[in-house]
Simulated assay, not measured.
Amino acid sequence: MTKTVQDNTINIFDNQIYDKGVRSKKLKQEYNQLTERIKDISHKIEYYRKNDDYAEATKLKRQQSDLENELVELDDKLNEEDFKVTAEEFEEFYKAYNGEMSEFKAEHQKLSEEMNNKLKEVMKVYRKMVENKNEAGRRVSREQYVKHEKLAPNATYNHYKGQIFDHEVNLDKDKHDTTPRGYAWKLEKALDAVSRDEFQKYHYGHKQW
């Protein structure tokens, strides 16, 4: 398929939003770990104060103060442009996304109609096949009666059944299933192969996702 849609959505995501998101999450993890350390020190300070060990409590208080300063620095960083996706970037992303998706939807509609037209062509061919099988079936139903009549001319159970279903008429030398179900299975198998092939192109790196 010829590529006609711009890659703005992908470029904005890869180079702006996702990159910032990864950095922000890493920083947020550090922030959470630091918060837990401060909480832990707070518990220790309370313990030493209850036991009148103010010297140790004071040391821990200084350590806690240093960690709190680090926490403030991390908090400030989280609000910096390098770590925070801006409203403008979200707007830019969705503007590109909506524009590009509208093109994909239009192309999908076009291809969907093309598929439906192909199915109509298949229906026309299949109708001819059924008509041919029905004509053959008119002969087959009579031959079935004649065969039994030849084998047992005096048998009372031999009756001419008349019309038979087209799927009861086998004209294929290789005995392929030419029923709607048979063709549906073939089509499903073929389309699954296409989907699998396209998936593997991305999965194995032949095409960039």
Rank of each mutant, 00 (worst) to 15 (best):
V169L: 03
L151Q: 11
K61V: 04
Y183I: 04
E36T: 12
E30Q: 15
R37C: 12
Q163I: 09
I38F: 02
E113F: 06
K189H: 14
Q109G: 13
D19S: 03
R142F: 01
Y145L: 03
M1W: 12
E131Q: 00
L78Q: 07
G99C: 05
Q64C: 06
V146F: 02
E188N: 15
E113S: 12
V194N: 05
H203M: 13
E135D: 14
A190Q: 10
E113K: 15
K201I: 05
K150F: 01
N69H: 13
A155K: 03
N170Y: 04
L191W: 12
N98K: 08
V169P: 00
R37H: 15
V5A: 03
K161H: 10
I12Y: 04
E198D: 07
I10T: 09
R23K: 08
P153T: 11
K124N: 01
G137L: 02
D174Q: 10
G205A: 02
R138E: 12
R142M: 03
Y31H: 13
D66S: 14
K84N: 05
A193R: 14
A57L: 06
D174R: 06
Q6A: 15
Q29G: 07
Y160S: 03
D197W: 09
V169T: 01
M101W: 06
Q144W: 05
K59D: 10
K110L: 14
E188K: 10
K150N: 05
A184T: 01
Q163L: 07
I12T: 04
Y157M: 12
F199Y: 13
N8C: 09
L119W: 10
V72G: 07
K44S: 10
A96F: 04
I38W: 05
V140A: 02
N8Y: 15
E113W: 07
E56S: 09
E89I: 00
K161F: 04
V72W: 14
Q64N: 02
K118S: 06
H43Y: 11
N158G: 03
D82L: 08
N158D: 03
K44M: 06
V85P: 02
Q208R: 15
E107W: 10
S195T: 09
D174C: 06
Y202K: 08
I10K: 12
S65M: 02
D174F: 10
S141N: 00
A106C: 09
L151N: 09
F93P: 01
E36V: 09
K201L: 13
I41F: 02
A87I: 14
E131N: 01
H167T: 05
K150Y: 06
S195C: 15
G21L: 02
F93Y: 04
V85Y: 01
G182D: 05
R49P: 00
R127T: 02
N154S: 13
T9Q: 03
K3M: 12
E70N: 14
G137S: 00
L27M: 11
H159C: 08
Q109T: 13
K95A: 07
V146K: 06
L187R: 05
K150C: 09
R142C: 08
E113T: 15
K173P: 02
E46I: 14
E70K: 15
Y18L: 08
V122S: 00
Y183P: 00
N117I: 03
G99P: 00
S65P: 04
E121S: 01
D192Q: 15
N98R: 04
T58C: 10
L191G: 05
I17V: 04
